[in-house]
Computed example of a mutant assay.
Amino acid sequence: MIIDTHIHIWDLKRAAYDWLKEDTSILNRTYRLEELLPSFPAAKVTQGVLVQAANHMEDTELMLETARNHDQVAGVVGWLPLMDPVKTFGILNEKLLKEKYFKGVRHLIHNEPDPAWLLQSEVLESLQILAMHNIPYDVVGVNNDHLETAIKVSEKIPDLTMVLDHLNQPPIAEKKKFGKWGELMKTIAANSNVYAKISGLGTASGNFTGWTADDIKPYIAYTLEFFGTQRCFCGGDWPVSLLAGTYEMHWMIYQDILSSLLPKDNADRVLYKNARAFYNL
């Protein structure tokens, strides 16, 4: 069993995705789950979690609708207007808490001009609401400033369960082992409510056509050392991952690395048991 905890879908006819408007890559088109599902068997993936790709409710509605129509979807990480705690509370109680597939929240903080966006008082109040309802939060950070912000959030709201998407962009492209990123990851790992998502590492390598397991393995091993096998799980990051190879390729590399680093019981935790517990699937 493998749970892919990081799948994106978007339908350009249904909603706007601002970050795609100037994109000239293969990503600037509609991607629906039906396109991915035939790749599940070869990748040995059995279920998936759909993850937010735009800061609006239309994106969340598309994911929830997709989840209702496909047994392979185990959960949805949606969006909430965190800058407005009253609205956040209202949408949760009037709608999302009644949705069986709603399992977490994310905001595209890496597209916000302020790397400390999460530390605004209104956002912190909304994150406290998530903590009260035991709703986990996905942190999509891409630099050390985002990681420092996540550390401060974890100190201000220690009961908030968080996961660092894509290991917060380790310095694979710079071939640093492990620099400031490593220091900050070690610091935040001290909070037992913070998890690490092994995902997006092919694109993080910066070498879209030539990256190998050897390029990313040290960063996975380092993360496992500090977060342990109880607080790590994996995601494929489709379709963004297609920039750096096929869906199956990414999953084969992740599985090979984990099997080389861990005994089977621990690898199983990272491949599905931890994800099931974290997102309450």
Rank of each mutant, 00 (worst) to 15 (best):
M1F: 11
M1K: 08
T5G: 15
I9Q: 12
D11N: 15
L12K: 12
R14M: 07
Y17F: 09
K21C: 02
E22A: 15
D23C: 04
T24F: 06
T24V: 11
I26A: 09
L27I: 10
T30Q: 06
R32W: 03
R32H: 08
L33S: 08
L36P: 00
L36A: 08
L37A: 10
L37S: 02
L37Q: 04
P38G: 01
F40A: 07
V45A: 03
V49G: 01
L50E: 10
Q52F: 01
A53C: 11
N55V: 06
T60Y: 07
T60F: 10
L62A: 13
A67S: 10
A67M: 12
N69E: 14
Q72Y: 11
V73L: 11
A74L: 15
A74M: 14
A74T: 04
G75R: 14
V76L: 13
V76N: 04
W79Y: 08
W79M: 07
L82P: 03
V86K: 15
K87A: 13
N93Q: 14
E94T: 12
K95Q: 13
L96A: 05
L96I: 12
Y101Q: 12
F102T: 06
L108W: 11
I109G: 06
A116M: 03
W117S: 13
W117E: 13
V123Q: 11
S126H: 04
L127T: 07
L127N: 11
Q128W: 00
I129F: 13
Y137M: 04
Y137T: 01
D138P: 09
V139P: 05
V142P: 04
V142S: 05
E148P: 00
E148H: 02
E148C: 02
I151G: 11
K156P: 00
L160Y: 01
D165R: 01
H166W: 07
P170W: 07
P171R: 04
A173N: 08
K175T: 10
W181I: 06
G182K: 13
L184E: 02
L184T: 03
K186E: 14
T187M: 12
A190I: 05
N191G: 05
V194R: 01
S199Y: 03
L201F: 06
G202H: 01
A204I: 05
S205Y: 12
S205A: 13
G206Y: 08
N207I: 01
N207D: 14
T209M: 10
W211E: 05
K217F: 00
K217V: 01
A221T: 04
Y222R: 13
T223F: 12
L224H: 01
E225I: 01
E225L: 13
F227W: 09
T229D: 13
Q230G: 11
R231E: 10
C232W: 02
F233S: 07
G235F: 04
W238P: 00
W238Q: 01
P239Y: 06
S241N: 14
A244L: 05
A244N: 07
T246H: 04
T246P: 02
W251R: 04
L258Y: 03
S259I: 05
S259T: 14
L261N: 06
L262C: 04
D265L: 13
D268E: 15
L271V: 00
N274K: 07
R276V: 05
A277W: 00
